[in-house]
């Protein structure tokens, strides 16, 4: 019973981590940079969905689309103002710039959205159902499925649409992509939009289980970064797998050892895993050239 509930919540958290981590993967693959304010994108998805749906009163599907679109715009802005000015000069200061951008956004949202957590109602997270004797919300089952679906959709989008293939071309050989008439700068900007949208989806999925507040994204962002690294930041499927592993590890450690040691054990495992496999569990080594 306990193990069923642990597995279910581990899988739903893991799917979340995986989706957010895919966001790190997308931008890293295209541009070797990541948005360290990715947690803020998670928050933005949930906050915008709440605001458009509950506060403004749009129908839910429209609110979700609107929130995703605005999150995408946020991703574009991050790339344009927090990453590009530094990456263009070969400076790593985008790391600090995106962190600072996250601080600004989280605080700005705190003053506009409000200082207290709000609940995003969902029919899927109000009445528990029984699964092998464990009570769970249907949403907990929906999240892993939705997570895998989004990851697959991303895969299909990349592998089977022209726009996706152009993005893959940029990943594999930016110079050759430019020779095909592909605008590499635009592709990088798009990858940041996609990254923010993925995180926003994760934020909307988890919000009914959790709550909506301006600082909800911070820990999710950090854990998802661990997942991205653990999976091997260049490997999308590795990252989804690592996400589930991470979520399960957290849930199982909490179930059987108590939550006091969860963070210590999980983060130690991350260090140990990277020491043994420096490119992540599923990543490939970069070829060294002289």
């Amino acid at each position: 019973m306990l193990i069923v509930s642990a597995i279910v919540s581990g899988l739903s958290l893991g799917a979340m981590y995986g989706l957010i981590a895919l966001g790190y993967h997308v931008t890293f693959a295209v541009s070797n940079t990541v948005n360290f304010a990715q947690g803020s994108s998670v928050m933005l998805g949930a906050v915008l969905c709440y605001t458009l749906w509950i506060t403004v009163g749009w129908p839910l599907p429209l609110a979700i689309l609107g929130a995703l679109a605005l999150a995408g715009l946020f991703g574009l802005a991050v790339e344009r103002f927090l990453v590009r000015p530094f990456a263009e000069r070969g400076s790593n200061a985008w790391l600090m710039a995106t962190v600072a951008g996250g601080i600004v956004l989280d605080n700005a949202v705190m003053f506009t959205f409000g200082k207290e957590p709000r609940a995003l109602p969902s029919a899927l997270a109000s009445q528990p159902v029984s699964l092998f004797g464990a009570g769970i919300y249907p949403l907990q089952l929906v999240i892993p499925v939705a997570g895998i679906a989004v990851a697959l959709a991303l895969h299909v989008l990349l592998r089977h649409t022209d726009a996706g293939k152009r993005l893959l071309a940029v990943v594999q050989n930016p110079a050759a992509a430019r020779l095909m008439g592909i605008d590499v700068k635009r592709a990088i900007a798009l990858s940041f939009a996609a990254s923010a949208v993925l995180a926003a989806i994760a934020g909307m999925l988890i919000a009914p289980l959790f709550s909506v507040s301006s600082d909800m994204g911070l820990m999710f962002g950090i854990k998802a970064f661990a997942v991205a690294i653990l999976g091997g930041i260049g490997s999308a499927s590795g990252i989804m797998l690592a996400g589930f592993l991470y979520g399960l590890a957290e849930a199982l450690i909490t179930s059987f050892l108590g939550s006091s040691y969860t963070q210590i054990l999980v983060f130690s495992a991350v260090i140990a895993a990277l020491a043994l496999m420096p490119n992540g569990l599923f990543g490939r080594a970069a070829v060294k050239k002289v």
Binding site: F225, I233, F267, V270, I271, A275
Partner: peptide, 9 residues
Amino acid sequence: PYLAMVTIA
């Protein structure tokens, strides 16, 4: 980024 993660952890 792998190094960054080790130090964050």
